[in-house]
Write a protein that binds this DNA or RNA. Structure first.
Length: 720
DNA sequence: ATTCTGGAAATTTTT
DNA sequence: TTTCCAGAAT
């Protein structure tokens, strides 16, 4: 490959470097991804085996993309994953050393919070503290490498003592449930490598060449992990930019990148300051802002690209008009300048801000996709199904068990669950074991007993089928057996959406089966718990992307909108009285602005609706930090509500829904059809309903004369 | 045991 | 405005 033609001399130095520690300080848009991919390609072309290379990125999406690019260059690819996925992989093979089961379950944030809630439970002293706050504090401590014991030793205030106790109990219950949380993945991986030198050595010799992206956002545990792995061969390449550090609030430690040369003596340091992404004026505006940070190593990006357009600043009267301006401008750019929707993005500070844009874009028929918000796997209906599947693979996960024992409702209430819990506690049993001995639990009525044992038997039945059935088939049968769809459809308002989500979940399993023909249910579950919303975003679809400022990291778009640039939103209220937090807010804004290739639109509102109440707002200080000659101002009087209306008149014939989802609907069954079902046997279709999830059939089955609603697409039914 | 109801709270950012 | 939760009604 001709590296000289594809890279500038500085980039080339970074790419051609093979042995020893290397730090690449890569300013925004300086070709960071390019360097990493070409460097991997170069390593492989120099005769290094792909399997001895490890690449670590921030998101699964970034990892996928990088893998594809390397694949495109040299037709081979090493392991590239996120820190968390890598740790999960490592632990899957080695966790037994630490006394955990290999089939451990990964708890996400919601699970963690529920567990904390459970711990605080009956104790009224704790009522003053929210489970969320405590969960956050615990996570914060964990990311700093503080153990429960260390925390307890240092605790002084009542709150700290409470957190200390909760933390300790939290860890105990995690282990009891055979579960680990996100933070544990890192903690346990580090613990494993520290306590078992022979394991460490194996992995050191396996991954001789390590690359870490977004190094400025690694925390102490992640640093430790990399340090351990790279200690022997010292072939570590870290790429990052201190000006783009935006995760200190969750424990990212900027000193990791600042002390690189101290930690890896003899390191080569390469700094990239030429920007290839943004046109001149946008870049200059960004430089303007970031230079206001005090805690910063001087660095000035420059560009050979043309000056381009000035960033536009629009001050709206209120948030409604702000979104209208954005929608108008998007519409104009699309219609007049033929800019595809996929080239446009909106970055806001808080997820709550997305709503008004969704509504406005909907009115304007502008196709869009919201990235982030409530992640797919965090939706209740999906978490419920996942809980069922987890229980099959890991019976001890009592959190999941409690979640599903009465979902859908089967007459097992809070009181009963409490009694079972007490029984389990008394006899030192897991919830699962206690359920099996339900006959010994006192004060439980005969009807309830019967339902519980029925429930337990059903789980056993499915568990025994786990080996013979593929995950998709198993999940389908489970959903039908439990009557999950019937339950969802009881919700008149959102039932259809939920059924549709279930459908999407099944598609995800199907995709997994295609990709990993040998993949087990456990592996699927582990993979999904480390999935984030941005990972599944298809950037080829022609839609405007809506996401938080944090999610914009690592991306680029020709056109970028940054709304809500007001004091108390950006910079955020909670950061106003700390200089370091304020500087992080500034970096965040800087990151967003440098995503823009050709056009940037910055907007603020003077009034904003908050919880249905009007609040007064002031333009962000960040706007003031950009010199006037760099901004094209479009103020209140320039685009008033009336004149903005002139931009856009929705035409009458645009009647189709702007956001169209592809559906592969096939008319499968009709009323009166005789059908055979793998679980229920023979039946007759008595009603067919078309839904977003395809046909839903009400079917009366001969066996016990029962009527059930079944999604035709997913049931393996045959016409008789 | 489940569903309904009204009052209170909610919004920082996430692997 | 929407979401959440405790207590009341079924």
């Amino acid at each position: 490959m001709r590296y000289e033609e594809e890279l500038n001399p500085v980039q080339l130095d970074a790419v051609k470097h093979i042995h020893g520690p290397l730090l690449v300080v890569a300013g925004a848009g300086s070709g960071k991804t390019r360097i990493i991919t070409y460097r991997i390609a170069h390593l492989i072309e120099s005769g290094i085996q792909p399997h001895s290379i490890l690449g670590v990125t921030f998101t699964n999406k970034a990892a996928d993309e990088m893998r594809k690019r390397v694949q495109g260059l040299v037709n081979r690819s090493p392991l590239i994953s996120t820190f968390h996925s890598f740790c999960a992989l490592l632990l899957r093979k080695e966790i037994h050393h630490l006394g955990y089961s290999r089939n451990y379950v990964i708890y996400d944030e919601v699970d963690s919070r529920n567990l904390v809630k459970q711990i605080l439970g009956g104790d009224e002293v704790f009522a003053a503290f929210s489970p969320k706050e405590i969960a956050t504090s615990i996570s914060y401590a964990k990311n700093r490498g503080i153990t429960p014991r260390q925390y307890a030793a240092k605790a002084r205030t009542t709150a700290e003592k409470l957190i200390a106790r909760s933390y300790d109990e939290y860890q105990r219950r995690l282990k009891e449930n055979g579960a680990v949380d996100f933070d544990d993945l890192l903690i346990l991986a580090v613990e494993l490598l520290e306590k078992f030198p022979e394991v460490l050595q194996r992995y050191q010799d396996r991954y001789r060449y390590i690359l870490v992206d977004e190094y400025q956002d690694t925390n102490r545990l992640q640093y430790r992990l990399i340090y351990l792995l790279a200690q022997k061969h010292k072939n570590i390449c870290a790429v990052g930019d201190p000006d783009q550090s935006i995760y200190q609030w969750r424990g990212a430690d900027i000193t990791n990148i600042l002390n690189f040369e101290r930690d890896f003596p003899g390191a080569t340091v390469i700094t990239l300051e030429q920007n290839y992404r943004s046109t001149g004026l946008i870049l200059e505006a960004a430089n303007n802002v970031i230079k206001h940070n005090k805690e910063r190593k001087e660095k000035k990006l420059w560009s050979e690209l043309e000056e381009g357009h000035k960033p536009v600043y629009y001050l709206a009267e209120d948030d409604r008009l702000e979104t209208e301006f954005v929608a108008n401008t998007v519409y104009e750019l699309h219609m007049r300048d033929n800019i595809p929707y996929r080239d446009i993005a909106v970055f806001y500070r808080t997820n709550a801000q997305s709503r008004v844009f969704e509504e406005q874009f909907f009115i304007y028929k502008i196709p869009f996709v919201v990235i982030g918000n409530v992640g797919f796997y965090e939706r209740k209906e999906i978490k419920d199904i996942v809980a069922y599947l987890r229980i099959l693979t890991a019976p001890d996960d009592s959190l999941s068990l409690i979640r599903i024992i009465n979902t859908p409702p089967r007459g097992i209430g809070a009181k009963t669950i409490e009694r079972i819990g007490a029984f389990a506690g008394k006899h030192k049993l897991t919830a699962h074991e206690a359920l099996k001995r339900i006959d010994e639990v006192e004060d439980v009525g005969p009807g309830i007993r019967k339902r519980i044992s029925g429930f337990v038997e059903m789980l056993e039945e499915f568990r025994s089928k786990m080996n013979e059935l593929r995950p998709l088939e198993l999940t389908r049968l489970l959903i039908e057996k439990v009557g999950f769809l019937d339950d969802l459809r009881k919700d008149r308002e959102r039932g259809e959406d939920r059924v549709e989500n279930v459908e999407e979940f099944l598609s995800a399993i199907s995709l997994f089966e295609d990709e990993c023909p040998e993949g087990t249910l456990e592996e699927f579950l582990q993979q999904t718990s480390l999935f984030s919303d941005i990972d599944s975003w298809d950037s080829d679809e022609d839609r405007v992307a809506l996401m938080t400022m944090h999610n914009s990291k690592g991306l680029e778009f020709p056109v970028v909108f940054i709304p809500g640039l007001e004091e108390s939103l950006s910079p955020h209220q909670n950061s106003l009285d700390s200089r370091s937090m304020l500087e992080e807010e500034r970096r965040l804004f800087y990151v967003c602005l440098t995503r823009a290739k050709e056009r940037a639109y910055l907007t603020s509102a003077m009034q904003r609706l908050r919880f249905g109440e009007i609040t007064e707002r002031f333009p962000s200080r960040f706007i003031g930090e950009i010199t006037d000659d760099l901004l094209e101002k479009q103020g209140e009087e320039l685009v008033t509500p009336s004149s903005s209306k002139d931009f856009f008149v929705p035409s009458q014939d645009w009647d189709e829904k702007p956001v169209v989802r592809k559906k592969n609907q096939a008319a499968l069954f009709a009323e009166g059809d005789k059908v055979g079902h793998p679980l229920y046997g023979e039946g007759t279709v008595i009603e067919v309903e078309e839904s977003p999830a395809g046909q839903l059939c009400r079917i009366r089955f001969l066996k016990d004369d029962e009527t059930k609603t079944i999604a035709a697409k997913f049931a393996r039914m045959t016409k008789l």
